[in-house]
Amino acid sequence: MTALLPEVPSAPGRHAAEVAFPDREHYAAQVAAYRDAGFELCADLCAVDYLTHPGRHLPDGVEPERFEVVVNLLSLSQKRRVRVRVQVPESDPVVDSVVGIYPGADAMEREAYDLMGIVFRGHPDLTRILMPEDWEGHPLRKDYGVGRVPVQFKEAPGPR
């Protein structure tokens, strides 16, 4: 198990966390391995858009891509947290769903899809969750124009 855990301190002091950087193909398998290693609870799942970020620290061998899906797993028995960061390219923003491994990731993956446009392959119901169904675009992306539409009623003039 320890071979899977490159210790990359992402914050100083006691908030230093174990972070794993699997590639896309091995992401779901890595998450499943953590579940089997005693991480009972998927605490959080979200996506980050690194479009305008000047550069982040990644371990050797990890190719930076525009999107990153960040999963926070929690082990109640070991009182440990681990963070899984997987790179997702802009041209093909698809990543395997972990709903089959952690059913609780359901709403979080829908949120990441809705706000960041990451497609989770194998999710049973990948629909928008916070934005209206006919909304265009994914608001949390860095290139999403903000402030263009004054109101969001359906009859409102102008492009969305």
Binding site: S10, A11, H57, N72, R81
Partner: peptide, 16 residues
């Protein structure tokens, strides 16, 4: 620069 996840116990559960 960096990334951090912090969680506390809010009245409703883990607030991260």
């Amino acid at each position: 620069e960096g990334e951090v996840y912090v969680a506390i116990e809010s009245p409703r559960g883990e607030l991260g």
